[in-house]
Design a protein around this nucleic acid. Sequence first.
DNA 1: GCTCACATGTAATCCGTTACATGATTCT
DNA 2: AGAATCATGTAACGGATTACATGTGAGC
Lengths: 188, 188
Amino acid sequence: MKLTPSSYLVLGMVRLGARSGYAIKKAADASTQAIWPTSLPQVYPELARLEGGGLVTRKDDPKGARARSAYRITDKGEAAFQSWLRSTRVGPLQFRDEGSLRLFFADALPREEQLALVKRLRERALREKNWLRGELIPQAESIPTDPRYPALVGRLGADSWAYWERWFARLEAQINRDGSTNDKTLES
Amino acid sequence: MKLTPSSYLVLGMVRLGARSGYAIKKAADASTQAIWPTSLPQVYPELARLEGGGLVTRKDDPKGARARSAYRITDKGEAAFQSWLRSTRVGPLQFRDEGSLRLFFADALPREEQLALVKRLRERALREKNWLRGELIPQAESIPTDPRYPALVGRLGADSWAYWERWFARLEAQINRDGSTNDKTLES
DNA sequence: GCTCACATGTAATCCGTTACATGATTCT
DNA sequence: AGAATCATGTAACGGATTACATGTGAGC
């Protein structure tokens, strides 16, 4: 049985106490969305697979007339999860950004338009940072059972966006100053 | 005709002088790989689509007995490219990282293993930074026709990885010191 | 009474990667 | 002579998103 990072996301959320598929998706939206997004049509088949492999168990848990399932992690599931956490192979980070791609080709634009593009990128960084600090991190801090790392990962994201914001702000200043972007680095 | 960021990547590389599909892939590996990866089986059909839409033209350009195509951007292609560069809609950044996901769930590990995980993440950041500074940026600096932004985007990537490296180093120090990761931020 | 959140799924589609297939040229 | 690079594709597969489909419960 092959387990992907999405499998471990679902398994991990069950482990932290999310019982239904819906609850797992809700928890993921409030915490791991920025590092590993998922969707309901992915969660439900994944839960069925994990159940088939004996990593979680399912119980009927209707609320009134509304059908609902309650999942729990098994010992086998816990072992698989621990083994994943400890594995030394770090998969490659997947990154794709249309904004950065535009910047890559920005030599084709007049300076004014270059500036507008950089400004949009800086503003996006600001928006993302504010969303993480204002929405995601507070929610991550309220995750049950030892809630240290969820909030920490949120801070890593927020700090990274803050770094981008500063980086683009310096680039804007540089383009405004003399149009030269040939300095060795913009790193602080 | 619908154009995706991958379309504009191919179009942009043709615009910068890459003639064959193979040359486009080679150029992308040496420059945009980290922000928008692509593959040969994606490039060839994309070139055919762009040709069908009249954004590029194709000429036979055999080298000896070996078949080869030479692509050029058309006026229509140049207009589409410019329009894309200027569009104010910034698509969302796509980010997926198994390493960050592991960190999210790291409360399940004993402190020693937490430390090992963070160390692996810091070392990955170091490797990526070194690869960008040592390999990608020098190549990006040698891209023909005004080569300002390609190298700039490389520096953004390298600076970002350097930031992660410092962030994880501070986290390591903190875990080593007292195991507390409840500080407000690790941002410098 | 209406709207939003809760709850579960399937079907169709899209985008991208890996594997397959072939062959010429250049460098060692 | 053999390996690496140049060069072009097709086929199969996989993972993820969007659209479709249905219905209950809670709050305003």
